[in-house]
Design a protein around this nucleic acid. Structure first.
Lengths: 366, 366
DNA sequence: CTGAAAGCGCTTACAG
DNA sequence: CTGAAAGCGCTTACAG
């Protein structure tokens, strides 16, 4: 029943239009254009005629219609907090990995921008309404029980703050990264190594602290409580925290090195040191974490711990597609929800050097 | 004809399911849940019953089905080149503006990542297949005739390199920005102001050069050909171009200030100056363009020309939605395709100061 | 092996 | 004013 399109419509051509022009059914067009198994029964000549008709009419399949029939949108969602000015490069790197992998698999990517995980996570179920086939959670900070993710939508998380039941997580070996950076600093002769730690209640903080302590122990440097300072992952807070610490330690020995929770925090440290006329790395070495763009832009360039963010993003797509294409029972799903841990690398740049020959003292300033 | 769902399916509830539970037709459910005008005829009690049934079944409308019926996906596409490491912050800022505005209007945003405009622009028509209602082109570099954008899909461009027939463009007053920065430098006493210009064949380059020249003229500083150097919008090329220039001008007078095509290029300049032991701004002032994140991270912080990138992204969404919601004839569309120009601001930071009292000479180095 | 028919889940125009 | 029916454009199971 090849219906004729309503008049006046500048609307896109449909399968039926193509079929009409080629003198075959819409089904035959679908089979040929999708290279379905069934297309083999159609003669080469007819196939060519169909192709030409599609070309002539500039036919594009209507994805919404296809999605309704196949229950697949060929689209994955990425949920992330993109507002915080400072998370830019972390997110963008992961996102590029996602985009590249999704595109290679013919999948579209739509972004769900959250303001913060606490309140906006409740919006996630709304997004699982058939416009995406699965969702990647980027650095979610939420409790496993805080919300129930719709069971008909597959999820994968990256750097999740805690284990979300049934959601496989992809992360990197932050503990080892912190360990190696501290060992490196110690190998250069540093003994007073400050760690400007991430915010309380995050695994990112805990693991880096773990690695920091293990690194100190490995180098036979006693752990000094005074040198473990809590900040967070932003430049502003790092600046404040370090300023506050220095004010409270005027006249005391200055740390020889500062290992910050991430690159943004390290930048904050460099700014504070510059204010005091202290030079990096001559007076104090500074190291960061993540090896984001800012590490290369900083002057001097920042030593950091590289996480393979693009590869992590790409891996998330692979795992998500596997779950979309081979849905399993809830039990099996849970069993498969293993985490994947990527290795990290030390990236050494100019911000780290040997400690000064003469011990420095925290300058006194109003 | 309220059909009973196939057994075993853990699939999402449909309108029919909700209707069945509430004892009404699917249509009634649709009317109530969408707050259609027709819902007014349904009694408050029934409405409440429907709402409760939807809640119980955790009903979510299937967007693909709705899209098929309404011909609207409630989704806009953003096409951009995100691969170039250096364009990060420009894109991300625009993108944030798009996300926020789209979200506020209940629209989803999907990203089409292109490798480069030259070859990948051909993929654009494929994307206009019913999964998006319109497309925002971010910084497209292509010729108006190079490809015909599908006429049934509305487009809006941001910082388009040339006028794309029928596509309204949103940009900022780059010429004025360059002018003001040069006037500012001149007001501090700078006379030898180098401009490290963007790549040939881009309007971004031409406009900044225009503003640069107008600024010089306004300050009665004669234009010196030697001080107009072609680079591009990346740190690496800026570095190479400036190095090359300095090598060719050993022993000559050093520029007192360098106004770079953008922030990334300015960073490259600062790196080269640092290599030679020259200090910013004591020996040479440096200014950028865009006021991206790197401007605030640079040491010293970079003076720059701020473009309201978020506002530009948001405006693009507004204009696109207007076109989606009120489609016009091709002729009217073309007439409406006016460009919008946002004003820019000078952002003054530590990288610019008065020129040194004594003229500097380009150091000689192997 | 083939093609007409049913169905995906929604909305809207239209007959009662 | 109301509700049953048609239709959006595609795919797939199924009767010939």
């Amino acid at each position: 029943m090849t219906r004729v399109r309503k008049s006046g419509g500048k609307r896109a051509a449909t399968l039926a239009d193509v079929g009409q022009l080629a003198g075959v059914s819409a089904m035959a067009v679908s089979a040929v254009l999708n290279q379905a198994r069934t297309s083999s029964r159609i003669s080469p000549a007819t196939r060519e005629r169909i192709r030409r008709a599609a070309e002539t009419l500039n036919y594009r399949p209507n994805i919404a219609a296809r999605a309704l029939a196949t229950r697949r949108m060929q689209t994955i969602g990425v949920a992330a907090v993109v507002e915080g000015v400072e998370l830019n490069d972390y997110f963008l790197e992961v996102f590029k990995g996602v985009l590249a992998a999704a595109s290679a698999r013919g999948q579209n990517t739509t972004v769900f921008a959250l303001h913060n995980w606490g309140s906006d996570a409740a919006r996630l179920p709304k997004m699982c309404d058939g416009r995406i086939d699965g969702v990647i959670l980027v650095a979610p900070i939420m409790e496993a029980g805080a919300m129930d993710l719709p069971s008909h939508t597959p999820f994968v998380s990256i750097h999740a703050n805690e284990n979300l039941g049934g959601v496989p997580n992809i992360e990197s070996d932050e503990e080892q990264g912190a360990y190696e950076m501290v060992r490196h600093l110690a190998s250069l002769g540093h003994r007073r190594i400050m760690h400007l730690a991430g915010p309380l209640g995050t695994t990112g903080r805990d693991r880096r602290i773990h690695g920091y302590k293990r690194g100190l122990a490995g180098a036979r440097v006693p752990f000094d409580r005074e040198l473990l300072v809590t900040a967070d992952f932003t430049t502003a807070t790092a600046r404040d925290s370090l300023r506050h610490w220095l004010r409270g330690h005027a006249g005391h020995l200055l740390p020889q090195a500062i290992f910050a929770a991430n690159d943004n925090a390290a930048i904050g440290c460099m700014e504070v040191l510059a204010e005091l006329g202290l030079r990096v790395p001559d007076d104090v070495s500074v190291a960061g974490f993540d090896d984001t763009l800012v590490a290369r832009i900083a002057v001097p360039q920042l030593s950091s711990v590289r996480q393979p963010l693009r590869a992590i993003g790409a891996k998330a797509v692979e795992m998500l597609l596997a779950r979309i294409e081979h849905p399993a029972s809830p039990a099996a799903t849970k069993a498969r929800a293993r985490s994947i841990v990527f290795p990290v690398d030390l990236v050494l740049r100019a911000s780290v050097a040997m400690p000064p020959a003469v011990d420095r003292v925290v300058p006194t300033r109003r």
